Amino acid sequence: MTDFLAARNVGKVYTSAKGGQVTALDDVSFEIQDHEIIALIGPSGCGKSTLLRMIAGLDDSFTGELNWAVPPKRGYDIGFVFQEPALLPWRSVLKNVALGLESKGHSTAEIKQRALDLIEMVGLRDFASSYPSELSGGMRQRVAIARALAYDPRILLMDEPFGALDAITRDALQDELLQIWEQTHKTIVIVTHSVEEAAYLADRVVVLSARPGRIRAIHEVPVPRQRDARIRDTAEFAAFTGVLRGELE
């Protein structure tokens, strides 16, 4: 793999409501490689989501550097999936997925076909005409993932995308995300509080310390890339999640 993005000595200081200076991130350096899934884990408040927003270009008031192999085009190269799907309730599944394409100069037929292809990819073919209020939480998050992929971004950023879901739905969506990766080979950065989720999804796991967030460790995930639920029952998986859990204590 080649480097897709390198963070070099990244830091973030902000002013609290009381006027004090708070260091959220300090001297953070790591690489994101092309086509890999990388997970960011760490205690609450350690700057994981802040770092994701920096990569997305939503926060540019930081020190250090984000060095892209190919600088991204805003609105084209970066897809973002939030913890809450944030779908437009007055638009159908099809029109929610198509939203990001409507200002990109595509024909109506091209937009519809691209949206339908993605809806098929996330397993919602029979719900293209449904509205968000008619969907379960897991289905709404599938729509959000399809919407983020609509304009074919080079990198997909995911901020605790499955954190609000029940365990069964979360496991199912993790498997679906891996299937999507198998089809697209997108570079994916996912923030999660779950060491099991990080170990199951990622090629590498970046562990951040408590605030101020610093790199505590970077691990290659020691299980094969081809994964299914059975991997969770292996001694190797249990040992690795134990290591991650220990680093968060």
Rank of each mutant, 00 (worst) to 15 (best):
T2P: 12
T2M: 13
L5G: 12
A6E: 14
A17V: 14
G20L: 11
G20Q: 14
E31A: 15
I32E: 06
E36P: 13
L40H: 02
I41P: 11
G42E: 03
K48H: 04
S49P: 09
T50W: 00
R53M: 10
R53I: 00
L58Y: 10
E65L: 11
E65W: 03
R74H: 13
Y76M: 14
F80I: 15
V81D: 04
V81E: 02
F82T: 09
P89E: 00
V97Q: 10
A98G: 15
L99I: 06
G100N: 11
T108F: 00
A109W: 01
Q113M: 10
L118H: 10
L124I: 02
L124Y: 00
L124D: 02
A128D: 14
S129F: 00
Y131T: 09
S136W: 01
Q141G: 06
A146P: 12
A148G: 11
A148C: 11
P153V: 12
M158G: 12
D159Y: 01
P161G: 04
P161A: 01
F162S: 06
A164G: 06
I168Q: 15
T169S: 07
Q174L: 01
Q174M: 08
L178Y: 04
T187W: 10
I190R: 06
T192Y: 01
T192E: 06
S194E: 07
A199D: 06
A202D: 02
D203E: 12
V205K: 08
V205W: 01
V206D: 03
V206T: 09
R214N: 02
H219S: 09
V221S: 07
V243L: 15
